[in-house]
Amino acid sequence: MHISEIILSPLLALIVGVFFLGLSRKIMARIHWRYGPPITQPVIDIIRMFSQKSVSHGNLFNFGIIFSIAGSIAVVLFIPFGRIHPLSNSGGLLVILYIMLLAPLGIALSSGEAANPNSSIGISRKLLLTLGYEFSLLLILLALMTHYRTISITEIVALQQKGSWSLFRLPLVLPGIAYILILPAILGVRPFEISKAPQEISSGPMVEYGGTYLALAKIEHAFAIVIGISLFVNLFLGGANNLAFFFLKVLLVFILGIFINAVFPRLRTEQAIKYLFGIPAFLAFLGLVITVLI
């Protein structure tokens, strides 16, 4: 636990996340047969938003979004990026699972005070979606923890470095596939982009965010992308020994996600829940049963 790592890892996550936002817009544009914005566009957007004078609906409105990013930063500290893992020995996966809650909860509380039904609907959808994918995610994580007999994420990465990736280990194949199936839901991309759904509920929780708040929400989004994918890379793709290799893996998974985003329409909420309770949950369950039996 070095102080430099504590500073470095959120910064790294932020840079990579914002880069990913730009990259996703560029790649999406290319799929649309467009030229696309410059890759620095999210940075420009964020600078612009910071300079705009927005409205505030109250103290919780201000605090919730700050709380949300603080939660994200805390999660980042718990997730190893390559060898950088400042806090990963303070509670392991269970703590990560719980701190990952803070980000959506902060946004939910903040936009709840905006007194707008669109944001309430968005939050309700977001929470339901979380419930849906969490069903499989918990089973997957439990299979991992049972298999490796530890709740520490660094241990899991270290064990994978010695042997093979979890995705290719016998009892963990099914949970791995299930994780891939729910990854779009975790990242909130189409077909699971139901909580924002600009054409239905005007970007949901973000409906009243402008200026600084929107910039913070964007940054939070950038963090969320990095967290969601890094967790997968660490747990199933063996993590990595150095940063470059780690982020290369993250990038590959992310590009896969963008392609999925490009070719699917948005699902309805109950369809999304039904899907998430269906095949991925079954695979994850089967995987856990096999893990326990072996």
Partner: peptide, 16 residues
């Protein structure tokens, strides 16, 4: 229509 479903890709093609 495709825009309503959040289907940007097809929307862009159709407009082109």
């Amino acid at each position: 229509y495709s825009n309503m479903l959040g289907f940007d890709t097809v929307a862009n093609w159709a407009m082109y």
